[in-house]
Amino acid sequence: MSDLKKQATSMHKAASGLRTVGHCTAKPLQEFKAQSDDLGALGALGSLLSATGEIREGMHTLTRLTKQLEEEWEAEAKLVGEVSDAFDLLDVLIAAAAKKS
């Protein structure tokens, strides 16, 4: 197996891993978001400190940031997959050129 083929295989595996991140975080993220709307666990302490709104806003911010990370990971997976495909093609072209020589 050529070095380009090994790199392409490695990059393909990395891209596949990046694509699955969203599947792994979807349920926990949904549960986290749901909890941000139900901060009853803070009880009187949250009300006394007037912190409930700030905590809710912080949780919403974390949810948005997580979604943005998932979008970045998906874009990265696409790019890595395209580079992997390019390496595969280059490997085939090099092999074809070597056969002609």
Rank of each mutant, 00 (worst) to 15 (best):
A98G: 08
L4D: 07
L18N: 01
E72Q: 13
T25A: 03
G40M: 02
E74V: 09
R56P: 06
E54A: 11
V21G: 01
L89R: 11
M1R: 11
L62R: 01
A44S: 13
K13N: 15
I94V: 12
S50L: 11
S50Y: 08
R19W: 04
L62W: 05
L69S: 10
A75E: 15
L49I: 06
G43P: 00
L29N: 00
L42W: 02
D85E: 14
K27L: 07
G81F: 03
K100A: 12
D91N: 08
H12L: 14
L89H: 08
D38R: 01
K67S: 02
T61W: 07
H23R: 06
E82H: 10
G81A: 14
E54C: 10
L45C: 07
K100N: 12
I55A: 00
P28K: 04
A34R: 00
L79S: 12
R19C: 06
A86K: 06
A34P: 01
A44N: 14
A34E: 03
T20H: 05
A96M: 13
L49C: 03
E57K: 09
S2C: 07
V21L: 05
R56T: 10
A97M: 14
T20A: 12
A86H: 06
S84I: 10
M59S: 00
T66A: 04
G40W: 01
K99V: 12
W73Q: 15
A8P: 04
E54V: 14
L79K: 13
P28G: 02
D37Q: 06
D91Y: 04
S84N: 06
L18G: 02
I55Y: 04
T25E: 03
A26Y: 01
E31H: 04
C24T: 09
T25Q: 00
Q7P: 11
H23D: 12
G22P: 01
L69H: 07
G22N: 03
S101V: 15
L4V: 09
G40Q: 02
M59R: 00
S36Q: 00
G22M: 00
L45N: 07
G40T: 08
F87D: 11
V21Y: 02
V83W: 05
A8N: 03
K6E: 12
Q30G: 04
G81R: 06
K33I: 09
A41L: 13
K13Q: 14
C24P: 03
G17T: 03
E71N: 14
R64E: 12
